[in-house]
Amino acid sequence: MDWLELALRVGAVTVAFLVLPLLVGQTEHKVMAHMQARLGPMYAGAFHGWAQLIADGVKFVQKEDITPRAADGPVFKLAPGVALIPYLLVLLVIPLGPGDLVGQPLDIGLFFALAIVGVGVVAVLMAAWSSANKYSLLGGLRAAAQLMGYELPFVLAAASVAMAAGTLSLPLIVERWEPWWLLWQLPATLVFFIAGLAEIRRPPFDMPIADSELVFGYMTEYTGLRFAFFLLAEYVGIVVISALTATLFLGGWHGPMAESLGWLWMLLKTGAVAFLVIWFRVAWPRLREDQLQRLCWLILVPVALAQLVLTAWVRVAMA
């Protein structure tokens, strides 16, 4: 019985892992197109191009899998998998609804999520170095500098909400969340979301893959399925960051009729945050490398630290 339940949970998370990123990707196709007064994909699947990403997947599978001769083969081939798996693991601990509607309730789920997301940078460095391409290497170094910098405000902002809730367990954090936290934790929310955007290297923080100067950064040499894995990792990244933001700061499954419709609220909040991620990509230009680091160290880190102090004060005052 236990094994059956475990298999069911892991299966459900895997389905979410495969479906949600495609949904986000398709939404990005369409939303981005309409924001630019275009229509986006219209043909694949007959109705408004709903099957475009499936068609893309088929295309990627058919493409030749090229490993450059000068590349470090094993590392080069391993990197996409290393990029993808951490996000899959993070999805396991994100609560979807009240009760035990979560892949795997972990006592220190938040810490687990933060630790695992941080592993992604190893994949970037692997891909960057093993490609034997200077654009790749430059992109990888930019990515590493960016990820190491933004990891700090990311973790600090998450620590603030963990402190407010007095637990590291994601389901418990959601359970103890109250609407007025929206105001109390607002700086942390903003810091977490911005740092999260930088963690998944989405515009306006896409300096590592800046296509106008670095071809495609650390992904330059990848083709076919391995490239698709990197793309999938990016979109799972959006899902993970959106879901974490919704869980930690927007109250997860809280909402009218949370007992029965909790999962819907969680999905809606995640979707709304993912929409923001797409919107920012369309509306804003890329940050320059120095602006990127300046934003991190001179704005986000101090704000996150101030939020920590504030959280501690309020906690002490309430106790």
């Binding site: 939303v31 197109a33 309409h34 924001m35 630019q36 007064a37 275009r38 229509l39 919107w279 369309v282 509306a283």
Partner: peptide
Amino acid sequence: TLKTLVSRSTT
């Protein structure tokens, strides 16, 4: 971008 999103596209 939001205004463009909700108005008809020109494609």
